[in-house]
């Protein structure tokens, strides 16, 4: 490949996409709507915001969102729940980990529309009445963070790790906590925290 005095354009031709855009067979934009919904518009400008109701930490939140909004951006930019962090936006770091219907997922690759009707739990939903969750306390006791940026994701992931039954050994914890990158490298302390909290979480 020669770079010499070549003229280049970024991006590629999008004509390929002009044909066959969402036609009449397609049903509406809001997630709850189904094909049978007669009131649904046949076609709508996809760039317009759509109504979404997200259930976050036990509360329904009505929002108008661009259909492209991820759960992460919905939480951070629209619900001001900034505990979940953006570290890569591509499912490569785990900083945005939340629970959806009690399963840990990366919220950066989850469309808000697709999460409608599901229960989203974030770091803000863990402490009750200002009492820290045992996993939060364990992270403090074991100094399981430094800069703290990955910590909400680590804690949500750790909670799921225990509930999935993957906290039985150090090796298991290490493997099943590997979806959460900690650049400060607090890993040994994170393992210790998960071990400390596991019995209490399994009890209650």
């Amino acid at each position: 490949m020669s770079e010499n005095s070549s003229s280049r354009r970024s991006g590629f031709d999008r004509r390929a996409f002009v044909a066959g855009v969402a036609g009449s067979a397609l049903v509406p934009l809001t997630a709850r709507a189904v094909a049978q919904d007669a009131k649904a518009p046949a076609a709508q400008d996809p760039a317009l915001p759509v109504d979404v109701t997200l259930r976050v930490n036990g509360k329904d939140k009505r929002l108008q969102l661009d259909a492209r909004t991820t759960v992460l951006d919905a939480l951070r930019e629209h619900l001001k729940l900034t505990g979940s962090k953006k570290g890569c936006d591509h499912g490569q770091c785990g900083a945005c980990t939340v629970l959806i219907d009690d399963r840990r997922v990366v919220s950066c690759l989850t469309l808000a529309l697709a999460a409608e009707g599901q229960e989203i739990t974030t770091i803000e939903g863990l402490a009750t009445n200002d009492r820290l969750h045992p996993m939060q306390q364990a992270f403090i006791d074991n100094d399981a963070f430094q800069c703290g940026y990955c910590t909400p994701g680590q804690i949500m992931s750790a909670l799921a790790c225990v509930k999935e039954g993957h906290a039985g050994s150090d090796a298991d914890i290490r493997e099943y906590m590997s979806g959460n990158i900690c650049r400060c490298a607090a890993y040994p302390n994170i393992v210790a925290a998960v071990k400390q909290a596991a019995p209490e979480i399994m009890k209650g």
């Binding site: 999008r14 996409f17 855009v21 969402a22 067979a25 397609l26 049903v27 509406p28 934009l29 997630a31 709850r32 709507a33 189904v34 094909a35 076609a43 709508q44 400008d45 996809p46 760039a47 759509v50 661009d66 259909a67 492209r68 469309l111 529309l113 697709a114």
Partner: peptide, 17 residues
């Protein structure tokens, strides 16, 4: 890019869409 979003409730609908 913008897209329309719909949920398919059954395989027929998904395939049609």
């Amino acid at each position: 890019r913008p897209f329309s979003y719909q949920r398919a409730s059954d395989p027929d609908m998904a395939v049609r869409a």
